[in-house]
Amino acid sequence: MTIDASTSFPSPRRRAGARKRRRMALFAVVALVLAGAVALILNAFRDTLVFFRTPSEIAERGEAPGARLRLGGLVKQGSVTHDGTTTHFVVTDMKSDLPVTFTGLLPDLFREGQGVVAEGALGQDGVFKADSVLAKHDENYMPKDVADRLKAQGEWRPDAGGAKPK
């Protein structure tokens, strides 16, 4: 009985080629999984990368009612009214105004004419319904992004209100 070695056992070259193909297939699967994970992470961060939008940006973009976002600007002078635990005020960027309603306790440092960032959603009636409000931390502070956007719009007046960006 004669055994032909070429048909019984794969040659060393054939084994090396099969290993290479398996390694490349494994590499391709790992690369696809990593690419998918990166795509999901970037998609999740897409909405949170913008810290806030000004009233002008919200008006220009035509934000859909109910969409969660952050609103930043100045609390308009003479706009704050209280109705029990609900506070109504207007956020302005000196170009556009947006009325805001907030129910709850405002930060102790919340005042008219000062920088504010409110988180919430735009209502069907065009009023921003805030569920949290962040205010300045001392009398000379305005969020840098708010000051930069006011400067870009040509509305920055450091002598008005005494606010200086940090």
Rank of each mutant, 00 (worst) to 15 (best):
M1G: 14
T2S: 09
T2E: 11
I3R: 13
D4K: 10
D4I: 07
S6C: 00
T7D: 12
T7N: 08
P10R: 06
S11P: 01
S11Q: 07
P12F: 03
R15I: 14
A16N: 04
A16W: 09
G17P: 00
G17F: 02
A18M: 07
A18I: 08
A18L: 13
K20L: 13
R21P: 00
R22L: 15
R22C: 11
R23H: 10
L26W: 12
V29M: 15
V30P: 10
V30R: 14
A31T: 15
L32D: 11
A35W: 03
A37D: 05
A39R: 13
I41M: 13
L42W: 04
A44D: 12
D47P: 05
T48C: 03
T48F: 11
L49M: 15
V50H: 07
V50C: 02
V50K: 07
F52V: 04
F52T: 00
E57S: 07
A59V: 14
E60L: 08
R61Q: 09
G62K: 05
E63K: 01
E63G: 03
A64G: 09
A64L: 11
A64S: 13
P65G: 05
G66A: 06
R68G: 14
L69A: 00
L71A: 02
L71K: 00
G73L: 02
G73A: 11
V75Y: 07
G78P: 01
S79R: 05
V80F: 08
V80A: 11
T81P: 00
H82S: 13
D83M: 05
D83V: 05
T85E: 15
T86W: 02
T86H: 01
T87S: 14
T87I: 03
T87A: 07
H88R: 12
S96M: 13
L98T: 03
P99V: 12
V100E: 01
T101N: 02
T101E: 03
T101C: 01
G104Y: 02
L105C: 02
L105Q: 05
P107Q: 06
A118K: 00
E119D: 12
G123D: 12
G123Y: 04
Q124N: 13
Q124I: 08
D125M: 05
D125P: 06
D125R: 02
G126P: 05
K129N: 04
K129V: 03
K129Y: 03
A130H: 01
S132H: 08
S132M: 10
S132D: 13
V133L: 02
L134F: 06
L134R: 05
D138L: 08
D138Y: 13
E139F: 01
Y141A: 13
M142G: 02
P143T: 08
V146A: 08
V146N: 01
A147F: 04
D148Y: 07
R149Y: 09
A152L: 12
A152C: 10
G154T: 07
E155K: 09
R157A: 15
D159H: 06
G161A: 12
G162N: 13
P165T: 00
P165R: 00
